[in-house]
Nucleic acid binder design. Structure first.
Lengths: 338, 338
DNA sequence: TTGTACGCGTTATCAG
DNA sequence: CTGATAACGCGTACAA
């Protein structure tokens, strides 16, 4: 080899055996006598030979890398998910390529293209409910796992929270505390998780005959700063709701911050409930009432679904649905305006 | 091609030209007439041909992926850094492979091995100051950028905060507030950022003739939960310090939480200052006094250093040193015990 | 059990 | 300006 490193041919030559033999030893394939095998192994360790992954991949037709497409790694929910997925896949011989779509469809499509060009072994998606995406996915013949999202015609493996139920549950919690005028902060329009939660919220309103007020619905890109900014818009509402359901903890924390800095007392004047239960949510001074998505478990299940497909091309598809859990802390209380 | 997809040979054949021509068009290389070029381009777009990156990489001898080794993506400081690095490198045709070492040397060494096997184009490290690592790096001939860490004999590109200065500055802030008995929570022993900050702290103590108390020094793995747990150890100290310098915001937030839940008032009874200035640090209820590392700028500089090397093999090496900035919020106040 | 020869898809070198 | 052909490093039928 040029690079000063050894190639399989070098090893074979120096050892006086064929490349095939060395290849078999590297991959632990049978068909090599014990003595020869040991001899090759020892020699490889001695000179520090490392097989070239690119060449292996080209030959095998696929790379042992799994792509993970998500919105923004800075969101703790995604970071937690990523960490667990990565840990498990790494331990099983795969690397994980994290791709930040920044909630942008074109970027996602671009990543899907790259996923094909790189011949990645698999694809884990926390992605947009967008026709273009779904169309593209159909033509990609590789292990796929959809996480916490729904695509109408997608039939492959997926692990998700019952987000409708989560939205319903969150809103019910507020109703039970006596709230009647409840607002909502949505996520990006392309997030099915957000849509489902919103649908659950609407359902409660309808079931209990409370009117839905368009002016009390906002949209966030799930970032802390955005939540803070939305507080300004919230302040301008004439008849402010007594409670808000917020699409995720990060937005809620920012929103709370903005409201409190404007003098609104939480929860006395405004109850807030959100979704995710990130680590920060339990902190003194934050203590957010939230709906847990069991993110660790979710990541582990996603990773295992991927491994299953990776190891068995014909494995039956699974659709794992997890139950959300209400965690009551200190940002919700009984409505004082009754 | 087998896969149902087109390869360069297919394109060449269908078009009645040679592979070379198609290759030239794909890569925008000169040596193809305008008409032929357009004809090929159109055809490629029409049938949706995508070059196989693995084959390209094998041929070129390197993969357009940059490895990024860090401790734990769940730490917001790393997540911010990662996001910016990724954004810039993606925009320049590279992908970024994030590798979580979990602050474990063996894992890091394993990742370095993989980096070689995969023929990654470059390596960005936020890594341990460990002889084994440094030794390994020497033998890796590829663009490298060290971020916020120091390795004694490393001479390549790096971008870092003056962490000694940061530690000094933080401690001085407390001294100026009248504190005399100041404790410290370190990071993992292998983190040079932590060591440097600790050294700065020791220096202040020495300069002002205040005694150093071993019992008031703890160690964290930079996680929130660990900070919370350390609060329990802190409570057991007989003569508790009136102020603590904490290695990073996440640990500090957890530590604060633990202390407050145990009834300690902050800052009245205990002042806390830390490092990073993550987004959460400015939240109502947290409002941490901290030393900013200008993480966004840091990520951008790291990415640009990498691009520079990627584009110019013989670029001169740079060592960018940034100044830390003290941000005073509400977790420090004048010492009441004077 | 071991070795030979070809294929993987692309780039690069050298003729024409 | 264009084309044939040899690498790139490894896996794998197939032959010995």
């Amino acid at each position: 080899m040029k690079n000063g490193k050894y190639g399989i041919s070098d090893v074979a030559e120096m050892l006086g055996v064929s490349k095939s033999t060395v290849s078999r030893v590297i991959n632990g394939n049978e068909g090599v006598g014990p003595e020869l095998r040991k001899k090759v192994m020892d020699f490889i360790n001695e000179i520090g030979y490392q097989p070239n992954t690119i060449a292996q991949s080209l030959s095998k037709g696929r790379m042992n890398i799994v792509a993970l497409i998500l919105g923004d790694i800075r969101n703790p929910f995604y970071a937690d998910l990523t960490f667990n997925i990565q840990r498990i896949l790494n331990d099983n011989g795969y690397m994980v390529m994290v791709l930040n779509s920044e909630y942008n469809i074109d970027r996602e499509l671009e990543f899907l293209k790259l996923t094909e060009q790189f011949n990645f072994a698999g694809l884990i998606l926390i992605t947009a409910q967008e026709k273009a995406i779904e169309e593209r996915l159909k033509n990609m013949e590789m292990p796929k796992v959809l996480v916490n999202r729904i695509l109408p015609y997608y039939t492959g493996d997926s692990v998700l929270i019952d987000n409708f139920q989560a939205g319903y549950q969150a809103t019910m919690h507020l109703i039970e505390l006596g709230h009647r005028h409840i607002g909502f902060i949505k996520g990006p329009g392309v997030s099915s998780a957000s849509s489902q939660r919103f649908a659950g919220y609407r359902q409660v309103l309808e079931n209990y005959g409370f009117s839905f007020d368009e002016k009390c619905v906002f949209e966030s890109d799930l970032k802390l700063e955005t939540g803070r900014a939305l507080a300004q818009q919230f302040l301008e509402i004439k008849e402010r709701p007594s409670a808000m359901v917020v699409v995720n903890d990060m937005t809620a924390i920012g929103f709370m911050d903005g409201c409190r800095k404007a003098g609104i007392r939480i929860p006395e004047e405004l109850s807030i409930i959100s979704f995710d239960d990130i680590a920060m949510a339990s902190m003194y001074g934050i203590e957010l009432t939230t709906i847990s998505q069991h993110v660790d478990e979710m990541g582990e299940k996603a990773a295992h679904l991927m491994l299953k497909q990776l190891n068995d091309k014909d494995a039956k598809t699974e659709r794992i649905i997890m139950e959300p859990t209400l965690i009551v802390r200190k940002t919700t209380c009984e409505c004082s305006e009754i």
